[in-house]
Nucleic acid binder design. Structure first.
Lengths: 169, 169
DNA sequence: ACCCAACGCTTGTCGAAGCAACTATAGACC
DNA sequence: GGTCTATAGTTGCTTCGACAAGCGTTGGGT
C-alpha cells in the first residue's frame, strides 16, 4: 500500500472537518458542564424550547437528536429526575408522550446560552472574516443538505395544545 | 426568554457543522461496517499505517485519536484479538509498548480505503465546486487550528526501529 | 546510591447509548 | 365488531469508553 494515500486531499478534508468539530464540541462540553448539563442535555433543552408549546413527542425528539428512541427515554428520565423537563400524556394518542420543558429547564438554558454564544463566537465564527465565514457556512450547508436526512421532524406536525407552555407541568 | 435566540446565526453555524459531521460519519460507519471495522478502528489502522514503522506508542495513539489511554488499551485489545495489530515491547523504555499493524490489518485497510474515498467524494468533496471546496477547507482549517491542540503527537519522536514493518509480529 | 515524583499502561467500576424484545394503543380492512 | 398490522414508548442486555486507582519503570535531585 502506498504510504501517501493519507495525504490524499479527501482524507485531509475529512480530518479537518472531524478535528474542527470535535475540538469545538470539547469546548462546548466544558462550558455546559459548568451549568450541570451535558452536550445532549443542552441539545434536548434547546430543541424543546424552540418547539411550539415548548414540547416534543419522544419520537420527534429522537429524530431531531440522532439518538435512538431508547436513548431518548433515558435522557428524558435523567432530565426529569433533575426537574429540567417532565413527561405529559398526549391527549389524542395514548401511546405518545410529550417531553415538556419546565420553568427550571428554561432557566437553566437561559443561564447557559450567553456563555455558549460567546464560545461559538470566540472559537468558531469570530475566527473568520465575514466573507470567509459565509463561504464556510455555504459549503457546510451543501454537505449537510446532501448527507443529513431529517432535522425537522415534529415541527411540521399538528400544533399541540399550548396550555403547558413555560413549564406548568 | 426570546424564542428566536435559536435563529441566531451562531447557533445556526454550529448546527450546520454538527449535522454535516454526524451525517458524514454515519455514512462512513456504514461502509466501514461492511469491512468489519468501526470508525475508531479504521482511524487506528490509518494512523498506525502512516506512522514510521507502522507503529505508535499507546500514548501517542491516544493523543492522535482523542481517546483516553484506557480507551486505547481497550481498542487495541479488541483489534489484537482480531489480528489487525499486535503489541510490541519498546526496547528503550520498558513502560511503553508499541501497537504495530499486522499484514492482516494493512490488508483490511487496503480493502476498505477505496470505498471510503468514494464516499468522501460522493457526499463531501464532490458536492462543491473546487473554489467553494477550497473556501470551506480554508475555513475549517482556521477553526481547527484554533480549537484542536495536538494532532501530531508521536510523529515527531525518535524514529523507531523498522524491523517490524509490514506486520511480521 | 537512594529516594521519589512523574510517566506508561492496565484494570475495576461506572454511566451512556444501541439493539431487540415487549406492552399498549391506533387505525385499517374484512 | 373483530382481527391484524403498524406505531410509541419502555426495559433487559450488551458494548463502549471515561475516570480513578494501581503496578512497574524511569530519571532527576541530593
Amino acid at each position: 500500500m502506498d504510504q501517501n494515500v493519507f495525504d490524499d486531499p479527501r482524507i485531509t478534508a475529512v480530518g479537518l472537518l472531524a478535528e474542527a468539530y470535535t475540538g469545538l464540541s470539547a469546548r462546548f462540553a466544558a462550558q455546559f458542564e459548568e451549568h450541570g448539563l451535558s452536550l445532549i442535555e443542552f441539545e434536548v433543552l434547546a430543541r424543546l424550547a424552540r418547539s411550539p408549546g415548548k414540547q416534543l413527542r419522544m419520537t420527534d425528539l429522537a429524530a431531531q437528536t440522532s439518538l435512538s428512541t431508547s436513548g431518548v427515554t433515558r435522557v428524558v428520565d435523567r432530565m426529569e429526575r433533575n426537574s429540567l423537563l417532565c413527561r405529559r400524556a398526549c391527549p389524542s394518542d395514548r401511546r405518545s408522550s410529550y417531553a415538556v420543558v419546565t420553568a427550571a429547564g428554561l432557566a437553566r438554558l437561559d443561564e447557559t446560552l450567553p456563555g455558549h454564544l460567546r464560545i461559538i463566537e470566540e472559537w468558531f465564527t469570530g475566527q473568520l472574516e465575514p466573507a470567509a465565514l459565509k463561504a464556510l457556512l455555504d459549503g457546510l450547508r451543501r454537505v449537510r443538505d446532501a448527507v443529513y436526512p431529517g432535522a425537522t421532524a415534529g415541527s411540521t406536525g399538528p400544533a399541540p395544545t399550548d396550555e403547558a407552555a413555560a413549564g406548568g407541568c
